[in-house]
Amino acid sequence: MQTIQANVTASISELKKSPAQVIKQAGDEVVAILSHNVPSAYLVPSAVYEGMVEMMEDYKLIKEVKTALNSKEKPIKVKFDEL
């Protein structure tokens, strides 16, 4: 059985019938859209999505920094004002 990764759920039929109502009832919460009681999609508020994108960008940057720190290349010293 698949885990539902949201506190709010709605069926595809509910979403088709009244998408604005589903969004309004969810408030700032992610909505799991269910098809036959199985999540088929997630409706994510824009603020949550923007936060997720920012976290993914931060994660990618952290990986790049770790790779650079673990490389054998000699770092180049620069002053902050030179950047």
Rank of each mutant, 00 (worst) to 15 (best):
K77G: 01
H36V: 06
T3G: 05
M52G: 13
F80L: 12
P45D: 07
K17S: 09
E82T: 00
F80C: 01
V53F: 08
Y59I: 00
K77T: 08
M52F: 15
I62Y: 06
M55L: 15
D81C: 01
S18K: 09
E29H: 11
G27V: 11
M55Q: 14
A47K: 13
S71G: 12
V44A: 06
E50D: 15
Q25L: 13
S13C: 00
E73D: 10
D28L: 10
L61F: 10
A20D: 15
A68T: 04
M56F: 07
T67W: 02
K16R: 10
L15Y: 12
P75E: 09
E82F: 02
K24M: 11
A41I: 12
Y42I: 11
L34S: 07
V38S: 14
L83A: 05
K16G: 02
A68W: 00
K63H: 03
Y59Q: 02
S11I: 05
S71K: 02
L83Y: 06
Y59S: 03
I33T: 06
E29N: 14
M1P: 15
P45C: 04
K74G: 02
S35W: 09
K77R: 11
L61M: 13
N70H: 09
M1V: 10
K77E: 10
L34Q: 06
K63L: 11
T3R: 12
V38M: 14
A26P: 07
A20P: 09
F80H: 05
A68V: 06
I33Y: 01
S40K: 07
Q2S: 14
K77I: 15
A6I: 05
K24Q: 15
E82N: 03
E73V: 08
S40T: 12
F80N: 01
M1Y: 05
P45N: 06
S13D: 04
Y59W: 06
K74C: 06
K16A: 01
D58G: 04
A10T: 05
P19Q: 06
K24W: 11
A32N: 09
A47E: 11
L83M: 05
Q5P: 01
V48R: 05
